[in-house]
């Protein structure tokens, strides 16, 4: 309740602070426009062409359903990775032995290119939701796992002593001492993993499915329709930016208010 009011009160200032990001994105568009002037319509249409194509796609309604399908797959894989990665990572962090054992496994998972998992997934799950969801899960899992493990490993021994000296009951130790600390590691990992999910799902769809943004990209590529390709890319990137800056970043600030220096 209190937190909600505080969040609402801080919202205008937060949104206004986005102008700096808007400025740098507009500078990127200027660079794009400049490059488009060199290469011409077929290779690199200018941003206005891409934006108007995107507006057409959105107005036609088709883009929304494709984005919805892609979002469903990305979120499914992400939520699975979030649950499994957080739980297993915390468990591994609590035991030195488990942490030692899991480290090389995680390195292998991170080091394996997502495209390799995609090929395996195609063999295992065929052309359906299973393939992109699995690929997203495998790509996002190790990032969350490592974050959770680090969080559990780095709990401050002095604060644990404090909890003992002040006779904190077990539930309070968890909610007041351990969780806030672990969350400060988990949250950034979740955000990174969400970004990975969103990128990987498009790649998986491009090769494995007949619907979703990835599949739409495959179609525009085969038609040599660069403007539409760029429009889809803008849609994917725009969605990620919106989720990150309108949802996750304010949430992160609310959760980690105690960290901020301003």
């Amino acid at each position: 309740m209190n937190a909600a009011v505080r969040w609402l009160a801080g919202l205008p200032a937060y949104l206004w602070s986005g102008w700096g990001a808007v400025a740098s994105l507009l500078l990127c568009l200027a660079l794009w426009e400049w490059l488009a002037g060199f290469y011409g319509e077929l290779i690199l249409p200018d941003p206005r062409a891409a934006l108007s194509t995107l507006a057409g796609l959105l107005a036609g309604g088709g883009a929304w359903s494709e984005l919805g399908i892609t979002a469903r797959r990305a979120l499914a894989g992400f939520v699975l990775a979030l649950a499994a990665g957080s739980a297993l990572g915390l468990a591994a962090g609590l035991s030195m032995t488990a942490a030692m054992m899991s480290r090389p496994v995680v390195t292998v998972l991170i080091g394996t290119p997502p495209i390799a998992w995609l090929v395996l997934a195609l063999l295992w799950f065929g052309a359906g939701d299973g393939t992109p969801v699995f690929t997203v899960f495998v790509a996002a899992f190790p990032v969350i796992f490592v974050g959770a493990m680090q969080g559990a490993r780095t709990v401050d021994g002095q604060l644990a002593e404090l909890a003992a000296a002040y006779r904190l009951p077990a539930r309070m130790r968890l909610t007041d001492v351990y969780l806030p600390h672990v969350l400060s590691y988990l949250f950034p990992a979740w955000i990174t993993a969400l970004g990975i999910s969103w990128k990987v799902v498009v790649m998986a769809e491009l090769l494995a499915t007949s619907d979703g943004v990835g599949a739409a990209l495959a179609v525009t590529r085969s038609h040599l329709d660069t403007a539409a390709t760029l429009a889809w890319i803008l849609a994917v990137v725009g969605t990620l930016l919106a989720v990150e800056y309108l949802l996750l970043e304010p949430l992160k600030r609310a959760v980690e208010r105690w960290r901020s220096t301003t």
Binding site: W16, W19, L26
Partner: peptide
């Protein structure tokens, strides 16, 4: 585009 960026950067000063 750069002029729009300048506009955003000037609004940003309001922070």
């Amino acid at each position: 585009w750069i002029a729009l960026a300048a506009a955003a950067a000037l609004f940003n000063l309001g922070n």
